[in-house]
Design a protein around this nucleic acid. Structure first.
Length: 272
DNA sequence: AGTCGCCTGGTA
DNA sequence: TACCAGGCGACT
């Protein structure tokens, strides 16, 4: 799913499309994805209106006029689609928020890993967000990034994807950032040299900004709030490019497994 | 650090 | 039929 650039794109879309709308009802055919329960959520959100929508890490937060907050995680295959009331049902549509102005916010999710959770107040939200590392495009300084890399001997790619250390980076942007910085994904984080850390820091910023600019990567399931694809997949540097020619040399991109995840890199440009 | 589970579907 | 999939928490 949705990594930082995809969730950020959806946040911007939803801000334009549904802020100010009133929640009229909620429906689901997948109760496990609604927390604490459909009954509680239904009782507490109906009648409230949507004040603002924010993102932190890969979490979307819908702030309601009642002070309650709906937090959504799309995991791998979740989508948030804004449709007109009565529009043909979307594939894998599992949660529907009926809104004023004849609109619906639909949460669709093939694999059903995603969830929608109602929080009582900001305090509860802060508690959850405190578990996440800094935002790479906001509050992460080079100095802090150095300290993070120095803190562990885990593979750098695994570290980049650890939401407790840095938030928002998933498999796609981790692979591409490491390629840009010419660092092998399996390198021990605390073995990286000063200039490599600096390059990686810039590379992360660059790939995430590119992801946002292209409105996300629609390699498989990702769509924005209007159901349109992003185009970062047309600019993948190494992700998903196994066997294809490297953009930096004459070699080919390889795929390995690291931390249980498919990992793409160029063995010539990114030496161990 | 690596594997499994949550789920469903696409592809080799 | 088996394996893989953008996440992540729980286990060993």
């Amino acid at each position: 799913m949705p990594e930082l650039p995809e969730v950020e794109t959806i946040r911007k879309d939803l801000t334009k499309l549904i802020v100010g709308k009133k929640i009229l009802d909620i429906e689901t055919d997948s109760v496990k994805q609604i927390k604490p329960s459909l009954g509680v959520v239904k009782k507490e959100i109906i009648g409230a209106s949507i004040r603002k929508i924010e993102r932190r890490a890969k979490l979307l937060q819908i702030f309601l006029s009642s002070g309650k907050i709906l937090v959504i995680h799309l995991k791998l295959t979740g989508r948030l689609l804004v449709r007109k009331k009565g529009a043909i049902r979307d594939k894998w549509q599992h949660v529907t928020l009926m809104l004023s102005g004849d609109k619906e916010l639909r949460f669709t999710d093939l694999r059903k890993f995603g969830w929608v959770k109602l929080l009582q107040d900001k305090k509860e939200l802060e508690k959850i967000l405190a578990e996440f590392g800094p935002e790479p495009l906001d509050d992460l300084s080079l100095k802090e990034f150095k300290a993070i890399t120095a803190s562990t001997s885990r593979a750098i790619k695994v570290l980049l994807m650890d939401q407790k250390k840095i938030s928002g980076i998933g498999n796609i942007y981790a692979c591409d950032a490491l390629f840009l910085a010419k660092i092998h994904p399996g390198r021990k984080a605390n073995d990286l040299k000063e200039d490599e850390i600096k390059k990686l820091f810039r590379a992360i910023e660059k790939v995430l900004k590119a992801g946002i600019k292209y409105r996300g990567a629609s390699d498989q399931y990702y769509l924005d709030a209007l159901g349109h694809k992003g185009s970062y997949q047309d600019h993948f540097l190494v992700y998903g490019r196994a066997g294809k020619k490297c953009f930096g040399c004459e070699g080919k991109i390889e795929k390995i497994r690291l931390g249980g995840r498919g990992t793409y890199y160029c063995p010539k440009c990114q030496k161990q």
